[in-house]
Simulated assay, not measured.
Amino acid sequence: MIGLRYVYAVCRPFDLPLQSQLVGIGGAPPALLHHHGLVAVVSTVPEADFSEEALKAHLEDLDWLSATARAHQGVIDALTTVTTPLPLRLATVFRDDSGIRTMIEAREDDFRGVLDRLAGRVEWGVKVFLEPEPAESAAPAPAAAKPASGRDYLRRRRESSHAHEEKWQRAEAFAQSLHERLCRHAEDCRLHAPQNSALSAAPGQNVLNGAYLVPRGRSEEFVELVDRTKDEAPGIRVELTGPWAAYSFTGEER
């Protein structure tokens, strides 16, 4: 089987061992390629799956993409426990180790600068959702509750729309306030596009999708701050994820 070299991340040399049972894409264990004082974390993947043409086809295969992303993330998560990795974008592949060394030499100044900035820091994600309205009862409404006329029906629709708009405005104001507070407790922050509710399994409408760069030593304080906000606004849900490698602050495509 012809193989390509897959690169998960670049980091500085580290002493702690990776998990002994750690595997990456396709079940291959990751290895460390040292070059110019940096380390590329790599494994061998089949060219049949990772050539340019094969990847174009796999972009239509959500199951394959999901499994590949999980394996990629698993290696990054393991690295985060022993060092500060600079994760590379999904499906970064080279023909051989020589190509990886050339890439490191071309980008080593950038790599070192980003690794210095991210050292000892992790990313936390915070999302704010406007909770969905309670499901309407399946039982038929009493006759008295039915609109008396078309005009009455339109009035009710306007009132319902107005009430939803007010809730949305309150959620946006809460999200903006929360983001500003969290940014003051983080070294850097990013706002990502809200999640598409049609594609996300999370209930409700995503109002805030933020990422926050926090020193490891202040992570507990940051988590406590988020936890204190979770009951501030009825009908609004706050979700915290992390700690992650600092994907949002590397300059790499996710």
Rank of each mutant, 00 (worst) to 15 (best):
D96C: 06
D15Y: 03
Q21L: 10
A106F: 05
P85N: 13
E136A: 12
F249V: 01
E47D: 08
A9D: 05
S197A: 11
E52D: 10
S197T: 05
P203T: 03
D97M: 05
R170L: 12
D109T: 15
R170K: 11
A201S: 11
V45W: 05
E239G: 07
N196M: 07
S200W: 06
P142S: 07
L118I: 10
E108S: 11
H72R: 00
I2D: 12
A106W: 04
R95V: 15
W124P: 01
L208C: 07
W244P: 11
V75W: 01
H179C: 09
Y247L: 03
E123N: 05
G113A: 15
P194Y: 02
R158V: 06
L59E: 04
V122M: 12
A135S: 13
E224S: 15
E232S: 11
G217W: 14
T83H: 08
L16S: 10
A144K: 14
G125R: 03
R101S: 10
T84L: 04
Y212I: 07
R228P: 07
Y212W: 09
E108M: 15
A67E: 10
T68Y: 00
S51M: 03
F249L: 11
N196V: 07
L86A: 02
A171C: 06
A245T: 13
Y247H: 14
D61F: 04
H36K: 14
L4A: 11
I76W: 00
L240D: 13
H164C: 02
A40W: 03
D97Y: 08
R157I: 10
Q73A: 14
E220C: 13
H162F: 07
P194E: 07
E239A: 13
M1T: 12
K167G: 00
L65C: 06
V23K: 12
S160E: 15
P243K: 15
D77G: 01
A69S: 08
G235F: 01
P142D: 12
A202Q: 07
R218Y: 13
A135I: 04
E52Y: 02
R254Y: 09
P243E: 12
A40F: 09
W168H: 15
H72V: 09
D49I: 02
D152F: 01
